[in-house]
Amino acid sequence: MKRILDIVLASLALLLLAVPLLVLAVMVRIKLGSPVIFRQTRAGRHGRPFELVKFRTMTDARGPDGELLSDHERITPFGWMLRRTSLDELPELWCVLKGDMSLVGPRPLPMAYLPLYSPEQARRHDVLPGITGWAQVNGRNALSWEDKFRLDVWYVDHESRWLDIRILWLTVRTVLQRDGISAAGEVSATVFTGSQH
Rank of each mutant, 00 (worst) to 15 (best):
R178A: 13
R74K: 06
S11P: 09
L16D: 05
R150L: 06
V137N: 08
V53G: 00
L176R: 08
L9A: 14
V175G: 02
E67R: 15
L143K: 02
I131S: 03
I131V: 14
L109P: 02
L22R: 11
I7M: 13
R56D: 07
P110F: 13
D179H: 13
E51Y: 00
H158C: 11
P35G: 07
P20M: 13
R3G: 06
L170G: 01
G63V: 00
A18D: 04
H158V: 10
L69V: 13
C95F: 01
G180C: 03
S34T: 14
E159L: 13
A43N: 08
V36I: 15
R107Q: 01
D100M: 08
E159V: 15
A18F: 14
P49Y: 03
F149G: 04
I4E: 01
R56G: 09
K31S: 14
E51D: 09
R56A: 11
M81W: 15
L151R: 12
M1G: 14
A25Y: 11
Y117M: 11
W169E: 03
T193W: 00
F55H: 02
V23H: 06
V156L: 14
P64L: 06
A13G: 15
P91Q: 08
Q196Y: 01
T57F: 07
P108K: 10
S188V: 12
P110S: 06
R62F: 04
G63Y: 13
R45C: 07
T193H: 12
L14V: 06
W154D: 10
S34R: 15
T171I: 12
P129R: 15
P91A: 03
S160N: 08
R161K: 05
R150P: 00
N141T: 04
E73R: 03
N138T: 02
L170H: 13
Q136P: 13
F149M: 12
G99N: 03
H197R: 11
L114P: 00
V104C: 05
M1S: 14
V137D: 03
E120P: 00
D126M: 11
D152P: 09
L93V: 00
A183D: 04
R39T: 10
K2D: 09
L90W: 07
A61F: 04
I7Y: 09
E51W: 03
R29H: 11
C95E: 06
L9M: 09
K54P: 12
W94R: 05
S118H: 03
F149A: 08
L12E: 04
M81L: 15
L114G: 01
S160L: 10
M111Q: 12
G180F: 02
